[in-house]
Nucleic acid binder design. Structure first.
Lengths: 107, 107
DNA sequence: TCTTTAAATCAAGATATATTGATATGTTTA
DNA sequence: TAAACATATCAATATATCTTGATTTAAAGA
């Protein structure tokens, strides 16, 4: 029950659904590029990423001070069904703003 | 997005997960039997049933003053996957206490 | 080692959701 | 039509979650 409710709680927020859709669309992305793309303040984004990670949806790859998040694979059945549902939602996704490649992550 | 989040929000509560499992296990049940089975105060149960119904998980059949709730069929893909997941959770379900058949719903 | 940078965590306030007890609605029966 | 009953809704409080800004951690480079 705990694990199921944790997955559901993670899905129960529009911001996190957008993040899942974003990562599903653009693939592995570093935190600062997500910050720039979503124009979201760092602590807020970080918190949502943690919740999604702790609920088993995301994987983090750390390189130095940078953190690259991606959809965890494989997802179990329920989580991948949720993702499939999210994939078909009519959402306006922000463009991928890869500031990391140009000016670095000075935000 | 709205509809998806409404489904997810409905699932995001242990009591409601129990109710879904209960109705999936025992089939259509009247409110007062659920009250008796869960030993739950009436307004609380009624609220949770409404949330599940409004989220598309339940169907209500009214006969006079009585209301019989059941899992709505057919469920769409995401909702039925959620139900399938709930079906496999390790839950201690209360026994079905059919007070409606013996003393009526005097609670 | 000191500074800079990226990310995570913390604390406070704002917002949303759950619970309870009281009241309202609507149907049946006396 | 009045009373009893099953269920729904409301109002107040309690609890949980989200947002923000500040602080902390940890890695890299000067």
């Amino acid at each position: 029950m705990e694990v199921f409710l944790k997955s559901v709680a993670a899905l129960n927020d529009e911001t996190r659904v957008l993040i899942l859709r974003f990562l599903d669309t653009y693939g592995q992305t570093c935190v600062c590029d997500m910050q720039a793309s979503f124009e979201m303040i760092q602590s807020r984004l970080s918190r949502h990423l943690k919740i999604l990670k702790d609920a088993g949806f995301l994987w983090v790859d750390r390189k130095g001070t940078w953190a690259y998040y991606s959809i965890r694979k494989p997802l179990d059945r329920f989580r991948s069904e949720a993702l499939e549902e999210i994939r078909h939602l009519d959402i306006v996704l922000p463009a991928l703003n890869k500031i990391s490649q140009t000016q670095g992550c000075k935000l």
